[in-house]
Simulated scan of single mutants.
Amino acid sequence: MTRFVVTGTDTGIGKTVFAAALAGALGAPYWKPVQAGLDEETDSETVARLAGVAVVPEAYRLATPASPHLAAQIDGVTIDSDQLMPPPGPIVVEGAGGALVPLTRTLLYADMFARWQIPVIICARTALGTINHSLLTIEALKSRDVPIHGLAFLGDAVEDSEAIIAEIAGVRRLGRLPIIDPLTPESLAAAFAENFNLADFQ
């Protein structure tokens, strides 16, 4: 069964675009458990626009654009981890920001990943600093026995950085999604097909 969690080494690196590409290629529904910030296009709306897949409604929609723990506090909402269990069947689940982003003051996304036991794809930017951020993310997930499916790099090619992260961590390099301009459903699908092997996700 095709079930993946998409997390990242940082926020604003293109994780949602990759999640859209993956969901579209697999024809799998998409789910963002917690959306923090509603003023601009949400991640679910972005994926629906770019991938045209079914989108499972968020468990929590928070108005404040901040870490979920703080957004919930400001909005007067209590996040219940029991409401964050992924639906059955094929699914692409996207976390918020990085793997150690707090959902509450005592619960991190990585803790939920460990509970779910769904293979995680780590999105890593290729810019300077990615080696450290990527290896720290991998260590944090491994320490919680989270299954890691592989690494998806985002941005311009930096061969040595991509190679050494996979080599040191012992994690599979799945491919790299380049910067896409203009970003349309067609250009995204084409870029994913050119740079990733769909068989690696099935």
Rank of each mutant, 00 (worst) to 15 (best):
31 W>E: 02
88 P>F: 01
176 R>G: 12
103 L>G: 03
139 E>K: 08
200 D>N: 15
46 T>K: 03
59 A>C: 06
62 L>V: 14
130 T>C: 09
99 A>T: 14
31 W>S: 02
176 R>V: 07
104 T>E: 05
43 D>N: 00
15 K>Y: 13
46 T>H: 01
124 A>C: 15
58 E>N: 03
103 L>S: 08
47 V>C: 02
132 N>E: 05
12 G>I: 02
164 I>Y: 07
24 G>A: 03
81 S>K: 10
39 D>R: 07
86 P>Y: 00
137 T>Y: 10
73 Q>I: 13
154 L>M: 09
126 T>M: 12
16 T>A: 06
72 A>E: 11
117 Q>A: 12
41 E>F: 00
27 G>I: 13
35 Q>M: 01
70 L>V: 15
136 L>I: 05
60 Y>H: 02
184 T>S: 06
78 T>W: 11
10 D>N: 13
171 V>L: 02
40 E>K: 04
190 A>E: 12
89 G>M: 01
163 A>F: 03
187 S>A: 06
79 I>Q: 00
178 P>M: 04
49 R>T: 02
131 I>A: 08
51 A>M: 06
16 T>C: 01
51 A>F: 00
100 L>K: 01
172 R>H: 13
66 A>C: 11
196 F>D: 10
84 L>D: 01
166 A>N: 08
191 A>H: 12
194 E>V: 15
131 I>M: 01
30 Y>I: 00
38 L>S: 06
80 D>I: 09
168 I>M: 14
153 F>H: 07
133 H>S: 07
35 Q>F: 03
168 I>W: 11
124 A>W: 05
156 D>F: 13
132 N>D: 06
40 E>V: 00
62 L>I: 09
3 R>M: 15
150 G>W: 14
180 I>W: 02
69 H>K: 14
22 L>D: 10
70 L>D: 15
150 G>H: 08
124 A>M: 13
150 G>K: 06
132 N>R: 14
189 A>R: 15
19 A>Q: 02
41 E>I: 04
11 T>H: 14
108 L>N: 07
65 P>N: 04
154 L>F: 12
15 K>L: 10
150 G>C: 14
14 G>I: 03
72 A>D: 01
170 G>W: 15
139 E>M: 10
96 A>T: 14
14 G>K: 03
29 P>M: 08
20 A>T: 06
165 I>Q: 00
35 Q>I: 05
189 A>Y: 10
176 R>A: 06
64 T>L: 04
25 A>N: 11
25 A>P: 15
22 L>W: 06
185 P>Y: 11
78 T>L: 15
83 Q>M: 10
72 A>V: 08
10 D>R: 09
196 F>K: 07
72 A>H: 00
112 M>F: 10
68 P>R: 00
133 H>R: 06
119 P>H: 09
